[in-house]
């Protein structure tokens, strides 16, 4: 994993997270180091309970780590303690999150589900709706912009959710099994989209997945085993002829 002559967007150093105390303590994450550069798409794999979602939640500033250091977009946000009091604002400004299920707000239509992030970020009503409409267009779901979440297919809902994650132009995009509810073709389309966004917006994309079919869409694949992170594959290195891509 060579530096790309750019500052990393996500840098995790010696990150640990344990739950419980004493003999009941469970180490969910142990001494994790992870660096993701702009434009990179990183996959996190591992069996259930290996700590993938906990790591994602720590990066999303949802779960407080037990130790280590987190640097997001050049700012150290955690160093043995949170260094910022407004994690909500940090999430809003720097992080876009794509859930396993779209998690759209059931009482807002497609456009408003995207525009709400912009409203929270301070955009005015019409500006927010314009940007939301552009994003839905970009994600090829503009024809469903007035549909309520209950009226959207799984793929359409997931694309609206991706539009919401991208709305505030975040430098970090975290995705928790975004292709789980989709068939393989749609899963590939979503991953291609994330790759495109990473390139176009110079964003770091971290994807938790179990889906073997989409592994070729990652630059690096990490595997979490018993709370430890191992680099499984670096797809950015040139391969010797005759080896599997």
């Amino acid at each position: 994993m060579e530096p790309l002559a750019k500052e990393p967007v996500v840098r995790i150093e010696h990150l640990s997270k344990h739950f419980g105390e004493g003999s009941a303590q469970v180490d969910a994450l142990r001494d994790i180091d992870l660096t993701v550069y702009p434009g990179q798409v990183v996959g996190l794999m591992g069996p259930s309970g290996s700590g993938k979602t906990t790591l994602l939640n720590c990066i999303a500033c949802i779960v407080e780590p037990s130790g280590g250091r987190i640097t997001l977009d050049g700012d150290v946000v955690y160093d043995e303690a949170w260094l910022t009091s407004d994690l909500r604002r940090l999430r809003l400004d720097k992080i876009g999150f794509i859930f396993q299920y779209p998690n759209l707000l059931p009482f807002l239509d497609g456009t408003d589900n995207v525009a709400i992030v912009l409203n929270l970020a301070g955009y005015g009503g019409s500006a927010a709706r314009e940007r939301a409409a552009d994003l839905l267009e970009y994600l090829d779901v503009a024809h469903r912009k007035h549909a309520m979440p209950g009226q959207l297919s799984g793929g359409e809902a997931q694309r609206v959710a991706i539009a919401r994650a991208l709305a505030n132009r975040p430098r970090i995009i975290l995705a928790d099994e975004p292709t789980a509810p989709l068939d393989s073709e749609r899963a590939r389309i979503v991953m291609d989209l994330l790759r495109r966004i990473a390139q176009e917006q110079d964003a770091a994309v971290i994807v938790v997945t179990h889906d073997e079919m989409i592994l070729d869409r990652f630059d690096h694949i990490f595997r979490l085993r018993d709370g430890r992170l191992e680099l499984e594959e670096d797809r950015t290195r040139p391969r010797r002829p005759g080896t599997e891509p």
Partner: peptide
């Protein structure tokens, strides 16, 4: 609850 959790996750302040 789920909608509120999502709102908080995407950065909605307590006042919202």
């Amino acid at each position: 609850v789920r909608s509120i959790a999502t709102l908080k996750f995407i950065g909605a302040p307590d006042r919202t």
